[in-house]
Design a protein around this nucleic acid. Structure first.
Lengths: 160, 160
DNA sequence: TAATATGTTCAGTATTGACTGAACATATTA
DNA sequence: TAATATGTTCAGTCAATACTGAACATATTA
């Protein structure tokens, strides 16, 4: 009966996902929820179950699931004949997260443009810093969505 | 004499960069420093000048410039015959920042692998969530460095 | 050597925001 | 209707950390 060991490994995995989420700038508890939803059986869990497994308050589970839902990472699931709600990971979750992150890139490109307006009367040398910033973020702003499309295509052909 | 207006616009730009930096998970003051270094004249500034313009303590300037230096975003500059140090933006700054961010992608791919080990005895259906996560992050872990290379090439050909 | 100019360290403060837990809402069953 | 089961809201707590400011370090000039 290696159940203890297995549970401990699961807990460690959950914490690791939590920490990574925190590094990405999201609340740790949101990461913990996601960590558990990645390995739990069945793959859908009720708020109550989440609170118990993660030893968190119901309030925290409620607000973090709301956040994850808004981010497009999880979805709510209601089963016929059951009054409880469930959450599970959306299949597009990671692409959704990635897209959200890419908004920052667009934001930085806009900042560069704004800076260039400020220096509109200045010499090319003065503007070079902002030109480089702008060019690079514009490049990624254009190319990353294309990369995502390529990924979607590959995924589609994989699942056939 | 529209000097007041100009200064106010500069301050607003600095704050905007600060806020964007904060959204990206870095200290706001680091963003402010970068914001000013993007538009200042001359493009290099001493810690003292930074503290004055940004109305920040010398301590904060000292630790934030250290951080930005470690991140590869700015570099220290000492001019002959001057005892003061200066900071300016590195030309590779944005690529350096971007690469740093991409470490998170690699991290998430590794997490997915770790999860898959935990579910090594489970059915393909059970493992699907983690498979998708792994596949997507592995895709970007591979492709984004290629994109960065393409960018470096374009940049080189631009500056010729 | 003292006086000045410059920069760093670090202990302490202040602020932000994640998280808790109790009160409240809603639905279901008896 | 009361009793139970479930979920949300929100005021308050706590911890992490960005930032300040004073003490300290270092270098330069007189």
């Amino acid at each position: 009966m290696r159940n203890r060991q297995r549970e401990s490994e699961q807990q460690q995995f959950i914490e690791a996902v939590g920490l990574s989420f925190e590094q990405a700038g999201l609340p740790r508890m949101a990461g913990r929820i996601l960590g558990w939803l990645l390995i739990c059986d069945p793959p859908h869990q009720s708020p109550g179950e989440l609170a118990e497994v993660l030893q968190a308050s119901k309030g925290s589970i409620s607000s973090m699931t709301r956040l994850l839902e808004q981010l497009g990472v999880i979805e709510r699931l209601s089963l016929p004949g059951e009054r409880r709600d469930y959450f599970r990971i959306r299949s597009e979750s990671w692409a959704a997260l990635f897209k959200r992150r890419m908004e920052l890139v667009s934001n930085f490109r806009q900042l560069a443009d704004r800076g260039l307006e400020l220096l509109s009367e200045h010499t090319p040398e003065q503007r070079q810093r902002l030109d480089e910033m702008r060019n690079m973020y514009a490049f990624f702003e254009y190319e990353v969505p294309r990369l995502l499309e390529r990924w979607e295509q590959e995924r589609r052909s994989q699942s056939e």
